[in-house]
Each structure stands twice: as C-alpha cells, then as structure tokens.
Design a protein around this nucleic acid. Structure first.
Lengths: 392, 392
DNA sequence: CAACTTTTGGTTGACCCCCGTCAAAAGTGC
DNA sequence: GCACTTTTGACGGGGGTCAACCAAAAGTTG
C-alpha cells in the first residue's frame, strides 16, 4: 500500500515543517530536509521566513561529524503569548502562557460562574489585561485565548449548550464577547476536555489514546482518541457522571435518575456519606482533609468510590481501549486510595488485550491541567499549519 | 479566528479536488473553481488529468443560465474495482464492487475461520479470481482489497492480535499473503468495524458520530467519531460484549468473567435461555425463527436482551454522544423487539442533551454492511488525495 | 433573423515556488 | 598546512498556478 504514497508530490507549506519544531528540540536544516523530503534550499527559505517572523530562533551549532558544524534552529515559544482561562463552578483561574504553555503569570480567585457571562467575562478581560501588564507583554503579542467552561460547549462556535449548572450561559457567544476586547482567536471548550488536553500535552504527548477522569464535586471525563479530543455530536461526550453503576444501590442523582456514578462516588457523595456517619465533611475538600489526617473511615470511603468509578471505567476501557487513564480532580489528591480502588476493579473486569498495556495514573499537573489545556487549545489553533502559512 | 485562515495559500493537488466529486454528483468547472478557490484554468487542467485516468467522466450539459451551457463532470465509479471480503466465524462473503461500493459480483459460502490463514486466504484468492472473471474485469483493474476479520486487528499493519476465536491467526501478515497474489493495497480490520464503516457510508454519510452495534452469536460495536473509525490503542475499541451489565445476574462468560453483556444478551445467550425453557433453540438463527413464527416467549426474551443491551448502550451514549446508533447482526432481524428494548432503556437512562437528537435504528444494509464496509475501506485508501496525486 | 449579451472553454505569458547544482565557508584529521 | 568532509548560500532551470485574453456557444432582444 505504501508504493502509492512513496512519491506523492504533495506540496507542504512552511507551517507543516514548523510542526516538527513544535517539540522544542533543535534541528539542523539537513534534519528537516530529510524528515520532510524537501530540498535543503527549500528548507533554508522556510527557515528564513520563520526566523523573520520570530517563531524560531538559532539554537547554536551541533557537533561536527567531520565537516562544517551545522547550525540548529528551535521553536521560540516566547514569540507570542496566549491567555488560558479555566472557569469552574465557584473558582476561576487565568494564566498568561507562552507558546509552549509555560505559565508566565497567573491569577486565581473565587468566582461564581452563576453570576453570568457579563460579570465573569468582564472579570476575565480585566484580569487578562492585568496579566499582560505584569508580564510586560503588549496586546499585540497576544495570539489567542483559550477558555474552559464547566458545562457542555459546542466547540466549533464556542457557545455553551444547555449547561446544567450555568443556565444563564446557554448559547452565549463567548468568543464574540471576548473578541470585542481581545482581537484574537478565542477557543472555548468544556473544562474536563481542556484538562484532558492539558494532561495529554504536558505528560503524555506520545500516547494516542487517553482518557482523563476528573473526580471532584462531580465526575466527568475527556476523551483523546487518535491524538485529538473527541467531543461527540453535541459536545457532550465523556459524561461519566451519569452512567449507572452496576450493583451500587440507587441513590437519587441531581440529574433526576437513580444510581448514577456521580450520586455514588463523587466527592460530594463521599462527603455526604461520611457526614451521615457523623464526620465533619461537607465538601470534597473536607474528605481529602480527613483522609490526609489518617481517618480510616474516610480512606475506606474513598477507596470504595474508586471501586465504583472503576466499574464504570472498566466499561470505558472496553469501549475506548485507551493506553492511559489519568485520574484528576480534588479527590485524586487524597493519596492512593482512589486510584487503588479504580485499578482493583478495572484490571479485574476488562479483557487482557485491553489492559495489558493500560496504565492508570494520577494527574501529573498538580491542578494546572485546566489552564495548560486551555493554553494548548489556543496554541494549537494559532500554530496550526494553515495559520502559520497565513502569517507567512 | 477565520481571518487568519481566509487566504491561507495552501496548494491543493488534483486529489483534493477529486474528493468533492466522490459523491457522484455532476459538477461544472466553474462549480469546482469557486469551491476550491482555484483558477478555472487550473481546474481545467485537473479535469483533463482525471479524465485521462478514467476517474471522472463527462456528465452532459447543465442548463444554461442565459449563456453557454456548462459541461459537467462526475465521478466514474466503474474505472476500477475492489475486492471486499467479510470473514465471519463460520461464514465467508466476498464481493467485487466498483469504486462506489456497488456490488458487481458476490459469493458467499460456509467457511470456518478456524481452518487457519492458509486455507481461508486460499479460498479468498481463488474466489476473488472467479469474481473478477465473472464480472469480466482484468486483474489490472483491481485497485485494492478490503478484509474484515472476526477479532481484533492492528489496522496499521493488518495483523490480527490475540484473536480469541481464531488463535491460529495471531500476528499473521494478512496483507502480505494476499499481496502475493493480488498486487494491490490490502486493508484489514475487525469485522464489526467494517460493518460500522459500511453502514456509515451507505446510509449515514452526513452524520459524524455513529455507533454500530452487532448483536449476533456475540456482541460487538464499531465507533465512528468525527467521521472516522476509532480503533483505540490495540484495535480493541468497541468491545461491548464484555462490559458488565448492571443488575442482570452474573452468568459466566467465555471470557472468564461474570455478568458480561454477551453472556446475558447475545443471540447465543438468548438461545440457551429459551432452550432451558424447553424450546428448540440452539443458535441465534433459531431465536429469530421462533420470534418470526410468533412465539411470545422468544419475543419477550429478545426484548429483555434489548433492555440489557440498552443498559450498556446508555453508558456508551453518555461517553460517546453519538447522533445515531445502528443495530445490526442477526438478532436485529427478529422484528422490532430488540430495538424496542434498547430504546426503552437508553432514552430513560441518558441525559436529555445526549438523547434529544439521538436516533436508534436498525441496519439498513440487510446483512451487506460487512462487504460494503470492506469495500469502502479499500476505496477510501485507493481514492485518498495522496493516492490520486501519486496516480496522476 | 441578426446583433448583442452572457457564460463557458482554451491558450498564452508571467510569476512563484521548488528543486538540483555549484562554489565558498567552516571544521576535522593526518 | 593540506586534503577531505560537511554545511551554507546563491543561481538557474523546470513545473505548476494564475490572471488575462480570445474564441465559441447559447440565449435574449429588437
């Protein structure tokens, strides 16, 4: 089958070559020529173009292999900046990052999403400007904005659709509003989706199939299949929270159904159960506190939540066959109890072919998955081959 | 965000233009020029190229809009043929189709996959040649071969991996073997995956997210997300059969676990249950027969199987958020009982956002989804932009 | 029915991009 | 210091694309 593809004369712009350099590693002209199949002279021209745009920079000379040592070039992530916004139900985080998603400045504050688009996006604009100022970057250096919202979002338009916990945001033109102030591309997605993206970009770039599970007040997941986020028909894919759990009672859920995973194993559900046993646990954070202080009842409850989540994840493993499952959200910070419960069930319930190379790990981004993902989403758009070619 | 993309100078080959014509509709040169943004002279040159390759043909004149009536051109599916092979556990089907997946000649016969690659692929070669002869097509007209196998397949290499019901096929180089005789690209995939592809191409081309579920002796599914098959890390995605069913007992399953969907709701499981009640049902086909003959016990059992499948599908709807679920396999041919049971549970268990536009339908390909998908898989490869450009 | 309008179809020359080649530059090894 | 290796930038040729022009075909209008 490859004989047909061997010499396909498909012209590639400078943007395609640039993608190879996105990883930050320095490369010589010869490296790029052999990798892209194009002539060295063509590569040289593209290098000049990208250099003058500031997107790449000389990275010294490589060691000689007997002749003149080649000059190397590497991606210059400091050429531009993007704003990464992670809006939760009651908390907002906004970061200014470079094009490698390195955080340059950051703010976070309690902020109720229920205050509505006007107030919240106003806060975003205000603090975005502040971050640009503290990082001493002009508005002309801003290349894009990425936003995560706690509800379903139609990614192509950036409009939330029927979001349960933020009804005032239904069908609001978030990109349009933000573009009134920041005249750059604005990308919007579900908060769990951007966390999946962040974790993937930050720690699992070489893995093509990843499932990110957030266990906090609620439970949700983001699906990366064949290296891209999969959002489903209405942007509602990955909704783990309202899957029924086999053999875990039928606790009523806020969605109106019974026996949903979220009603059984979310941080809130665990807290409620512990509170009923007389412990001082009102929210997810209290559960984490109790576990960390060595409370055995709390540890056992978290482990049981892990088992319940594992029951649902076992089904997801069979369906999606990921290489990695990343467990994030506040409840994942309560030691190894949650993930132990998850592993226990998943490895028992799933078929060998699906589990033999499956890793189940905790988030490695320490709560920054959201902003990292929002940043990555914006950067991906801004540095896409088409955008680069248009930018010259 | 579109301002950056507006005039992206991304050169496109003849193959890209050709993709627009794949739908079979006739188009004028002007249509193609405005659609691709290229000059009419460029389009004219490409038309000539594709015409001389036989891939497109004149399709008469369109009606004049006041001036000279334009000539139209349309995809010529008869330019080449592909072999589509659908191998089941005990049955094989092989078809010769044109580039629009129209069947030109077809053979099917009982054939045990367990006889091993040598015997089975020998049969494929032999009957492939026969079909070419009956359709009066030379070997030079064969453009590709698509094969579906009843087990997990690493699609990139075409090698089955750890297939439970065909152990002799593990890591066999199926494309290599077939290419020894047919010197054309050979694409291989799981049988349920190609059924999903076939159903998508034949009936749901405009839908981006589709889940195809096969209910026969076993239960499996194929996932189409963002318009492409998603196979997971080991090609094992879509394995519905061994998901645990909430609240449906814990019947032992051949996979070694308990309570798997396949052990509860597959055609075999239903047959076994009916047999235990004294009915003459040894295989899935017998169940269908009983239902068609009006047996109420059998109907009820099929409907209950539908409910059990629905329980698992509800979770899949939450995770994948498809627009369409297609139910295929022999048990779907037993009237509306199966799908009624499925609908009953899915629409009750899933969230409104995911179900408001969800359609659950039976297969519209009358058992031909497999060969149609195998054909589509091969055609997609052969007519990809890169392949077309290479072919000139 | 003839002239005009409209639209398509084909051709040509200019331009741009990409590729090969070549000589100069910069190091290495003897 | 010299021969050899490798990289680098420059130059000319070739292929493809575009814009423009002209011719042809059909419909419109008087």
């Amino acid at each position: 089958m490859e004989e047909l593809l061997k010499f396909a004369p498909r012209p590639t712009g400078a943007g395609d070559m640039f993608q190879m350099l996105r990883d930050g590693q320095p490369r010589t002209r010869a490296d790029l020529a052999t990798a892209t199949g194009q002539a060295r002279s063509t590569i040289a021209a593209r290098i000049d173009l990208l250099m003058s745009a500031g997107l790449i920079a000389p990275a010294g000379e490589a060691t000689s292999t007997g002749g003149r040592p080649p000059a190397t070039f590497a991606f210059n992530p400091r050429a531009k900046v993007v704003l990464a916004v992670d809006l939760g139900a009651t908390h907002a985080r906004i970061a200014l990052t470079d094009l490698a998603s390195q955080v340059l400045a950051e703010t976070n504050a309690p902020l109720a999403i229920a205050d509505g688009p006007r107030a919240v996006l106003g806060w975003v604009v205000e603090n975005g400007d502040k971050l640009l100022a503290t990082a001493e970057r002009g508005e002309s250096e801003l290349a894009g904005v990425g936003v995560g919202l706690p509800g379903p979002v139609e990614h192509s338009t950036g409009h939330p659709i029927m979001p349960p916990i933020m009804p005032a945001w239904d069908d609001v033109d978030v990109p349009g509003i933000l573009r009134r102030h920041f005249d750059v591309p604005v990308l919007v997605d579900n908060d769990v989706n951007i966390m999946a993206l962040g974790e993937h970009r930050a720690a699992w770039q070489t893995v093509d199939n990843l499932l990110f599970v957030k266990v906090a007040t609620g439970i949700g997941s983001g699906i990366i299949a064949d290296s891209a986020l999969r959002r489903g028909a209405q942007g509602a894919a990955g909704d783990l929270g309202h899957v029924a759990v086999a053999g875990a009672g039928d606790a009523p859920c806020r969605c109106g159904n019974h026996g949903c995973l979220e009603a059984v194993a979310s941080g809130q559900a665990v807290a409620d159960r512990l509170a009923a046993q007389g412990l001082d646990a009102r929210r997810s954070a209290d559960v984490v506190q109790l576990v960390r202080s060595g409370d055995l009842t709390a540890s056992a409850a978290v482990r049981q939540a892990g088992r319940d989540i594992g029951t649902v994840l076992a089904a997801c493993v069979s369906m999606l066959n990921p290489s990695v499952i990343v467990i994030g959200g506040i409840l994942a910070e309560a030691g190894e109890h949650l993930i132990a419960g998850i592993r226990e069930v998943v490895y028992r319930r799933s078929l060998p072919l699906a589990t033999q190379h499956l890793r189940i790990v905790t988030s490695q981004t320490r709560g920054e998955a959201g902003v990292l993902g929002a940043s990555a989403m914006a950067v991906d758009h801004v540095l896409s081959p088409a955008s680069i070619d248009a930018l010259i």
